[in-house]
């Protein structure tokens, strides 16, 4: 996908605070790349060329001297596959804060509990915080990964197809958690699953081959799209 000519072109999007913005589109439409630009994980790709501006509170995060590590602390990311670090649940959650200098055990404990509560995982794991995170089920692991970004007290959460590998029950739990979280966070959710986007998004963007086709409230895109391609996609004619 990378290294080819253009993954994404001329995109302009305003992402609202305290809402869930859903991004949908067939694979290779540039959704993941867009998401990774937003916390500059694209820096890891050699020779990538990005032009334009991404403004967070009015500051362009793509400027070379922008503090990437602080940015990533503010803009958290949850990947398609749950990736717990090979440590205990507790250490997974405190890893980020510790690396950013939080040492006080009381604050760490508090953050662990809060973030697990918010990710609706607390009741399931509160008695085994010090067991390996690898022992959790796939759905639990993914909620742990969400909790891990919450423990960083980030402001924006990027989710890259977070339920793609999960069963419907685990998916429902994650959607519930996201709905609860949106009042305090700006959430951007990339998904192939149009139904999921329709269920929980406040605004929806549709991407096709690196182009932003349409952007608006879900009602508009799903019931009355202004572009023929959007209609084809949401009605399942391709993708």
């Amino acid at each position: 996908m990378y290294g080819q000519e253009f993954s994404l072109q001329s995109i302009s999007l305003a992402i609202p605070k305290s809402q869930i913005t859903g991004i949908m589109g067939p694979s290779n439409s540039g959704k993941t790349t867009l998401l990774r630009i937003l916390n500059r994980l694209t820096d890891l790709i050699p020779d990538i060329l990005i032009r334009g501006q991404v403004l967070l509170d009015g500051v362009d995060i793509l400027m070379p001297h922008y503090n990437v590590n602080l940015l990533r602390a503010r803009v958290g990311m949850v990947f398609a596959k749950p990736i717990p670090l090979p440590r205990s649940i507790y250490e997974n959650l405190t890893f980020g804060p510790r690396m950013h200098g939080v040492k006080d055990r009381r604050i760490l404990d508090e953050r662990v509990e809060q973030s697990l509560q918010a990710a609706i995982l607390w009741d399931e794991v509160k008695d085994r915080l010090f067991e390996s995170a690898l022992k959790l089920s796939g759905g639990q692991q993914q909620r742990l990964c969400i909790a891990r970004t919450l423990a960083m007290q980030s402001e924006v959460i990027l989710l890259d197809e977070p339920t793609s590998g999960l069963d419907p029950i685990s998916t429902a739990k994650i959607e519930e958690a996201l709905r609860n979280l949106k009042k305090d966070y700006t959430i951007i959710l990339v998904s192939n699953n149009t139904k999921q986007i329709a269920r929980i998004s406040d605004r929806v963007a549709f991407f096709l081959m690196g182009d932003l086709i349409e952007y608006g409230p879900p009602d508009m895109l799903f019931t009355n799209p202004s572009d023929k391609r959007t209609e084809d996609y949401v009605s399942g004619r391709f993708g």
Partner: peptide, 27 residues
């Protein structure tokens, strides 16, 4: 060591060297 571990650490705003010493080398 899985590449994903590095991405997780980076996505948490952990610098490269700390990612290496705290995540990659222990694994």
């Amino acid at each position: 060591v899985p590449q994903e571990y590095r991405e997780v650490a980076f996505s948490l705003g952990v610098g490269k060297w700390k990612t290496i010493t705290r995540v990659v080398l222990p694994a």
